[in-house]
Design a binder for these strands. Structure first.
Lengths: 224, 224
DNA sequence: TCGACGGTTCGGTGACCGCCGAAGCGTCCC
DNA sequence: GGGACGCTTCGGCGGTCACCGAACCGTCGA
């Protein structure tokens, strides 16, 4: 099998709507059962089973057996990054036909970090206050940023140089913070109860505590 | 059209072998005619025409008309990054069946920067000598690195903070340097005559001057 | 032990899509 | 002007594949 053929095979697997639904359902890093994925993909269990077999065979998904359930998750962060990259190219739908995805566009998780308007606002805030420096090529935590993040409780790698991976947000078309720092930020916000995961969705809700917290600490007010 | 459906559509476009060949042929940033792409895709001109229309319609390719020729190129660097991401997941073919792609694995361009063994060796060298710091999340040019790169003639952004984007090499499965710095390095190596583009391929050849140059300046000896 | 449930396998059906050759359209050059 | 060339459109063919329902296997709980 050729290199290009291998690429085509992987892309082709993402290229089917049912499988694309399965993969995006797993994009937040959770592990879901075959049945849950069948619901997400909107196809029958038997059809889903076939898709899952192919995705697993191609090492896009990893599977873990627990009793009579089989839990599927993305095989590696690399898969998540690939999906993000495709999303970034596919771009957002025209504004006029946004339907029901408003919550998703407002705040969501993206494998392990925050995205959507909240993610972008967080990146903007940290950039504006000089705590991180971002460009299309990469980003870095500044000295003041390091202190700030330590106090916030999201010190991603103690004592080590910290980079942040910029990740183009497909709905906002602006970068948000991914990588180790992005994961630490999201984890800390969850820990503080500022955000809460929604069931069966990558969307997250901003709690009242989060609303004031994001406002005070980062100067973010998504309703403004 | 749903967000996920849009992603699936883009992925599906990459998912066909002929189209994948077309896209990878354009991955080095050049603009090629429809006929050249038909040759690259190994399908008839009529079939190629259909593929090109679909790729252009989906904004994966941009087209420029010149007389009776139509020149196609990747619509944006984002498309190149997406292809790299898919390649990284698809991974390298098992070593036993490498066929004819040896030159490609040795040294090639990847949109605008160097990849393959040469690209990885360059990244290793710059890291080892402390001129750049790299991690999976990002990278940065150090102070000594800035001076070094200025002298080499590959100062990517005068006076500005320079990040480098790490890019997982699909054949080596190790990071090489992409982004603005990667582009500047590749351009400078070409300018110095250290490397030469091959016709009809993303592979580059290392010239005799390059062989000694890479050895003296970066301590790279790919034959060793 | 016996249903209930999660998941897979199988067979059949239908649609989509990639492929080509032939014909048509516009451009260039002799 | 006429022929060569680059590219596109059209029609038809064939293969692949997504889909479902029914039957089957293994696990859990009553």
């Amino acid at each position: 099998m050729n290199d290009v053929a291998r690429m085509a095979r992987v892309a082709g697997l993402i290229g089917d709507p049912a499988r694309a639904n399965i993969l995006t359902a797993l994009l937040d890093g959770r592990a879901l059962t075959a049945k849950e994925l069948a619901f997400a993909a909107r196809v029958s269990p038997s059809t889903t089973s076939g898709h899952l077999a192919r995705l697993t065979d191609a090492d896009l998904l990893a599977v873990e057996k627990q009793g009579r359930h089989r839990y599927f998750r993305l095989a590696s962060p690399l898969v998540g990054q690939m999906l993000e990259a495709v999303m970034a190219v596919a771009g957002p739908a025209p504004k006029s036909i946004w339907r029901g995805s408003e919550a998703l566009r407002n705040a969501r998780t993206c494998y392990d970090h925050l995205a959507g308007r909240l993610g972008v606002a967080l990146a903007d805030s940290l950039t504006r206050s000089g705590h991180v420096a971002l460009s299309a090529d990469g980003g870095e935590v500044t000295d003041t940023g390091h202190a700030f993040l330590c106090e916030f409780g999201a010190e991603p790698a103690p004592g080590k140089r910290v980079f942040c991976r910029p990740c183009l947000d497909w709905s906002e078309r602006r970068p948000h913070i991914a990588g180790r720092l992005g994961a630490a930020l999201a984890a800390r916000c969850l820990e503080r109860g500022w955000i809460a995961r929604q069931r069966d969705s990558r969307a997250v809700t901003i709690t009242p505590a989060g609303s004031s917290g994001f406002s005070e600490t980062f100067g973010i007010d998504l309703n403004g």
